[in-house]
C-alpha cells in the first residue's frame, strides 16, 4: 500500500519521465512516442521505489536490473535514469544525434544504468533470464525486471524464454507485459491477436497478475509481491501514448515525427499537471 506522500512523489516522477522523454523527442524531431509513454508509470514505480540501484556505480553487481526488451522505449528509461542522477538531464537531448550515448534502442555499452542491449524484439527476454539466473548462481540477492511489449510477444523467443523461466523456477525475474493493445501497423487485435495474456502466462507456469499498468497503486502492489516457486508475470493493461491526450487519441502512435510546436503543446500539458501536484 502506497502512502499518500509516496503516491504523489511517484506521480510527479512519472510526469517528469514523460517530460524528459518528450524533450528528447523534441530535440530530434521524432521518436518512439507511444510505447515510451505507456510504460512511464511502471518505470516511475520501479526506479522511484522498488529497484536498488546506485547512480554513482551503475555496474554495482548486487543492484536490481531492468531489461527493457521492447528496446524502443529507451527514451523513457533514459529520462528515469537522468532524473535518478545517472547522467546529466541535458544529455537526454542528444537522443539519436551522431555519436550519442542515447540511441533509439537500449544499449548497455553506451548508456550508464542500462543493463542490457535490446531492440531486436524478443531477445531481451532470454537475456533477462540469463542475467537473473547468473545473479542466483553468484548468490546475489537481487531481482531482474523484464519489460516485454505486447506486439513483441508475437516473437516465438518470448515464449521459449517464458517456458524456461517457469520450468527452471527463475523466480528472481519479474515479467512485465506492456499490454498497450497496439503495435506498429495498428491494433494488436487486428495484426496478431494475443488474446488472454494472463491465461497464457498462467498456462506457462507463472503466477500471473493483470492490473491497470498506468495505476501507480496497482503497480506498487504487484511489484512488491514476493514470488514463491512460481515466477511472477504482471500484465500491464496500459494505454499507448498514456499521459498526452493528443498521442493517446492518435491511432498510429508507435513512432511519430512532430513539429517543435506540437512537442511544446504536449510539454505544456504535462508541466501543467506537474505544477498542479504542487
Amino acid at each position: 500500500m502506497l502512502s499518500s506522500d509516496k503516491r504523489k512523489e511517484l506521480q510527479k516522477f512519472a510526469l517528469q519521465i514523460r517530460i524528459g522523454a518528450v524533450e528528447a523527442f523534441k530535440a530530434r524531431g521524432f521518436g518512439h512516442v507511444g510505447g515510451s509513454l505507456s510504460i512511464a508509470d511502471a518505470l516511475a514505480v520501479l526506479y522511484g521505489d522498488i529497484m536498488k540501484v546506485d547512480p554513482a556505480n551503475p555496474k554495482w553487481e548486487d543492484r536490481d536490473k531492468l531489461v527493457c526488451s521492447k528496446g524502443h522505449a529507451g527514451p523513457a528509461i533514459y529520462a528515469a535514469l537522468a532524473l535518478k542522477g545517472f547522467f546529466p538531464y541535458e544529455d537526454l537531448k542528444t537522443l539519436n544525434q551522431p555519436g550519442t550515448r542515447f540511441p533509439s534502442h537500449c544499449d548497455r555499452n553506451k548508456t550508464p544504468g542500462i543493463d542490457m542491449t535490446t531492440g531486436s524484439l524478443g531477445q531481451g527476454t532470454s537475456q533477462a533470464v540469463g542475467l537473473a539466473m547468473g545473479d542466483k548462481i553468484k548468490g546475489r540477492k537481487c531481482r531482474t525486471f523484464l519489460i516485454v511489449g505486447d506486439g513483441e510477444s508475437n516473437e516465438g523467443q518470448v515464449w521459449e524464454a517464458a517456458m524456461f523461466t517457469a520450468a527452471k523456477k527463475v523466480n528472481n525475474l519479474v515479467w512485465l507485459i506492456d499490454y498497450n493493445k497496439k503495435q506498429l501497423d495498428g491494433y494488436t487485435e487486428d495484426i496478431m491477436d494475443m488474446g488472454d495474456m494472463r491465461a497464457k502466462f498462467e498456462a506457462f507456469g507463472f503466477e500471473a497478475l493483470s492490473i491497470d499498468g498506468n495505476d501507480l497503486e496497482q503497480l506498487y502492489d504487484a511489484l512488491t509481491k514476493e514470488a514463491g516457486d512460481k515466477p511472477i508475470a504482471v500484465i500491464l493493461n496500459t494505454v499507448k501514448g498514456k499521459g498526452v491526450q493528443e498521442v493517446e487519441d492518435t491511432v498510429s502512435n508507435h513512432s511519430m515525427t512532430m513539429t517543435e510546436e506540437v512537442y511544446d503543446r504536449w510539454l505544456s500539458e504535462l508541466r501543467a499537471e506537474l505544477e498542479a501536484l504542487g
Binding site: 532470454s126 516465438g156 524464454a161
Partner: peptide
C-alpha cells in the same frame, strides 16, 4: 535461440 540469449545474459552477470 533462447539458449543463446540466456548465455548472453549469464555473461552480463
Amino acid at each position: 535461440a533462447n539458449m543463446a540469449g540466456i548465455a548472453a545474459g549469464l555473461s552480463a552477470a
